Amino acid sequence: MTLRELVIAYFQYPAIIGYLTSAIVAIGLFFRYPAPLVPTLASIGVALLVYPLVWYCLHRWVLHSRWMFKVPLLAATWKRIHYDHHQDPNRLEILFGALHTTLPTIALATAPIGYWIGGPGGALAAFATGLLTTCFYEFCHCIQHLAYKPKNKMLIEMKARHMAHHFHDERGNFGITNYFWDKLFGTYYERIEKDKKSETVFNLGYTPEVAERYPHVARLSGGVATGHPSQRIPH
């Protein structure tokens, strides 16, 4: 895949169109309800700093939780937003999260801080920053999952860390573009440091045995797939 093909594929995803449209609306509203320059810049800066930590916490303690599939009302959401992605990391139609879950999350992670700093204008600036940061994260996510070989050293390292998260051990490397919090909390690793592959790297701990007790996700999935995605027999 060429860079041009990657960009074309990226802009075809409804989620990206949704993020960009929302960012344009937020920026437009900012000019209707502006904040002073310093609070605006502060709101943008804090949103950029907070975003990687929020993503790390959500990815580690929510998306990789072992409590969501136990709750019938949350099982379908967990399945859609992360279980399916780990079951088969190359399924491109579920590469991005669902807008009804991601947009409120981005707003809650950024807008209150921006409002505290600069009122409505600060909230809009922070929210727009979160949306555009998400677009950058998802572009890197595309690089990591699509058949594109980056030449940039930083992107190569990002892809290696994320592929290890998907195919070697899901209990680390929770960042997408920023692994500072992984290093701080001791979850950063290079594949050569772990000679044994995690047995739950594709099912996130939702094993056939667990499914017998909490069957909600299994019912929605037509069972519990096991083994490497490329070695499974299609239904």
Rank of each mutant, 00 (worst) to 15 (best):
L73Q: 13
G45T: 11
I81S: 04
H59R: 09
R60G: 00
G18S: 11
L74S: 07
L29N: 06
V25N: 00
Y56I: 04
L63R: 10
K70R: 08
W55P: 00
L63M: 12
F31D: 05
G45K: 13
G45E: 12
H64Y: 02
A76C: 01
P39H: 10
H82Y: 01
M68K: 01
T40H: 13
V25S: 00
I44D: 03
P72E: 00
A76R: 06
A75E: 02
H59C: 15
T21G: 14
A26Q: 06
T77F: 07
M68Y: 04
R60E: 01
I17H: 10
I44L: 10
L20Q: 05
I17L: 10
G18Y: 07
Y33D: 01
V50A: 15
T40S: 14
I17R: 13
P34R: 14
C57V: 15
H64L: 08
I24R: 04
I17Q: 13
I17A: 13
T21A: 13
Y56E: 07
T21C: 11
A47G: 07
Y33C: 02
T77K: 04
W55H: 02
L20Y: 08
L48I: 14
G45D: 11
L74K: 06
H82P: 01
A35Y: 01
A75L: 02
H59Y: 07
P72H: 01
A35H: 02
S22I: 03
V62N: 12
L58F: 08
A42S: 12
I81T: 06
I17G: 13
F31Q: 05
L20V: 04
A76V: 02
R80C: 01
H64A: 02
P52R: 14
V50C: 15
R60T: 00
L29F: 03
Y51W: 07
L63D: 07
I24F: 12
